[in-house]
Design a protein around this nucleic acid. Structure first.
Lengths: 133, 133
DNA sequence: TATATTCCTACTATTCAGATAGGAATATAG
DNA sequence: CTATATTCCTATCTGAATAGTAGGAATATA
């Protein structure tokens, strides 16, 4: 229950890998090799991380990816949301009545509270914290 | 991300339904109708809840399901675990090295902490809290 | 021009959640 | 003893999502 997708786990490892190289950049192939991630699959992950502004990229020869911010300034929530979107235990967390049970959804506040708890945990930890163990 | 299965949501509603009838029992068909749950699907859910000791059942005519405990004594964690098993963000939360990345898994403690946070939230709330809104 | 890279689109394979179907076992009422 | 209402058990189907693959276009460097 509440399993984290392989994609998100790959994303965290890829970010950690980049965080370890202060200035240098790394190619997708290098990261894939270092972190045991299928290379082609990783490309799609890096694309999402870039779209969220967490990393930068250079195309062409000598291209690659690099951190866009200080690892201490990137929360785990940012990474998770970049890959899998917002945490949403049930569809009605955002809008009341947006689940199969309509406006009469007693458990709703319970799930909203859970979301807030998870969000807080993830927002409190940074990439630096996690990549250093 | 972190979507709760329909099964677990159904289970919570079914438990709430039973919690509202102090002594009486209800048949699967009655609960299904009251909570808009596919009747046959619900049977399997009630079976798990019974296996975990949260509800009791009587077979045959005039049979049905009823609460095995006081709703205030049933934590949401018990219900969730009865349906979907233990919370496990990554496979290596229980045993180090039990993920694809072996013993060298830096994010592990991060996920263990998340599991503990979620478990605590769920353990703190009871069926009574949730079913009353 | 050759090469190394990111980037984009489409496809495949596998798994799993959600649901359905049919009937066996069991209890009650008449 | 029979009809009926129920839980209980097993098998199957289906659609969506995840994980991964394939091929090549765009782009930058030497």
């Amino acid at each position: 229950m509440f399993a984290v997708s392989a994609r998100t786990q790959y994303a965290i490892r890829a970010m950690s890998c980049l965080a370890k190289r202060p200035d240098r950049s790394a190619t997708a192939a290098e990261i894939a090799l270092a972190e045991s991630i299928p290379a082609k699959y990783l490309e799609g992950i890096l694309s999402r991380l870039k779209a969220s502004g967490l990393i930068e990229s250079e195309r062409g020869k000598n291209g690659g990816y690099s951190m866009a911010k200080d690892p201490a300034a990137i929360s785990m929530l940012e990474i998770v949301e970049a890959i899998d979107g917002r945490i949403k235990p049930v569809t009605c967390v955002d809008a009341p009545g947006a689940c199969a049970f309509g406006g009469d959804c007693h458990p709703r506040n319970f799930w909203i509270g859970l979301k807030a708890t998870i969000d807080a945990y993830l927002a409190e930890r940074t990439l630096k914290d996690v990549s250093e163990g």
